[in-house]
Design a protein around this nucleic acid. Structure first.
Lengths: 215, 215
DNA sequence: TTGAAAATTCAACAGATGTTGAATACTCTT
DNA sequence: AAGAGTATTCAACATCTGTTGAATTTTCAA
């Protein structure tokens, strides 16, 4: 049943589920924990979303399109600005990463939780193939085409493996495990997405150039 | 109770648990599923390992020391060979990644499952801080010191963020989600660790140089 | 205000879950 | 072969799980 009236408890269920699924995964969270966190009866989750799996998908899809639109706008903007010769590798990667940071700047903790959930899904051999490709692959294809244009000598395999490295570095960042905090003795913070991207962009761009410019 | 006699069923429990935990995570696997997979009674897991959490830890620790030793040998070997000036960034990263590949060459599927489990743990905001640092951080510290010596101009933050990028790219590789297979239309295979490292080593080395040579 | 539709709660189910204590089978030393 | 120690199974528990149908409350247009 589609919602007909504003139902704040419905949103609270999504918010709490988002946070808990990101932290413990699909099987590590019970409907009762979500209901308790949202201060809501257990049955309400089923009423609004049906099965547990459908709630999980609803959480995943709620912000997926917003994120895709934000990224697509950033990519097209830098393509328009670069003109006929096309954007540089740095500009393309920047347009891939910075939208994630803007989402954080709103101060909304929900986006932080959501990105950790995407990291969980993307890194999972079970959920990854089931949920990532339909939601994100089309836009990723656009990015890879843009990168191919910026790196004309690149072989296909090199391009995909390089994107894989970018995706991995990004995924571990979004997961916010706090491991770098301890490893660096507090010099680096998992919560500091801006610092992460400031270092990731030149790192990844240099990697692409090294691997994709030398056939 | 420590095992006093050779008990093949005990090993089978560890093998099956390794595979299932890697695929579905700690909460996504039941003791009964593990017992069924190992063709063993449910109670046997408790008899050998105690609580479910202790079984999980036993699986995680079984190969941790073997992996650490293999990596430490590789690092020390390339340090010895390089002499006083120390190994290059490529050599250090090679000694970090190639042992993972050798573990696969034995043909033992167990190592493949184990590495996917490490990826799951490392990417988890819940398990990462609890299990990774005690098992792997000491050796990671050695690697970072070696990298610092090879990149004398590097600031601490740069060094840690670059290692974070390396760790992320590696983690997604170990997870073997098969996403790159679909994305590349079969040109790249998640199961091909050698191809992954062949591209990852120059990619990451170039990234380190770019970020850590320009203060 | 009334009444219907939507939102929410209540109560309960059937099945699955981790764990345990007692019972049985196995293995090896003497 | 006897027997002690180990490995394994059997049977059962209390608790928790997702889900559902009925009852109740809230919302809002007429």
């Amino acid at each position: 049943m589609a919602q007909k009236r504003a139902s704040p408890k419905r949103e609270r269920i999504l918010d709490v589920a988002e946070e808990l699924f990101a932290l413990h995964g699909f099987d590590g969270v019970t409907i009762r924990q979500i209901a308790a966190g949202a201060e809501v009866d257990v049955a309400l989750a089923s009423y609004h979303f049906g099965k547990k799996l459908e709630l999980f998908q609803a959480v995943f899809e709620r912000r997926a399109m917003l994120l895709n639109n934000s990224r697509r706008d950033a990519l097209h903007a830098c393509q328009k600005e670069a003109g006929k010769k096309g954007p540089t590798v740095e500009q393309i990667i920047e347009s891939f990463l910075r939208p994630l940071e803007l989402a954080q700047e709103t101060g909304d903790a929900g986006w932080r939780h959501y990105l950790a959930l995407v990291a969980y899904v993307n890194n999972s051999p079970y959920w990854g193939p089931r949920m990532m490709s339909s939601a994100f692959d089309p836009l990723v294809g656009e990015y890879i085409e843009a990168l191919r244009k910026a790196l004309p000598k690149a072989r296909d395999e090199s391009l995909y493996w390089c994107y894989h490295n970018l995706s991995g570095a990004l995924t571990l960042t979004l997961a916010q495990t706090g491991r770098i905090d301890r490893l660096s003795g507090g010099k680096c913070l998992s919560s500091d997405f801006q610092a992460a991207y400031d270092h990731m962009i030149p790192f990844v761009a240099a990697g692409f150039r090294e691997v994709c410019n030398t056939p």
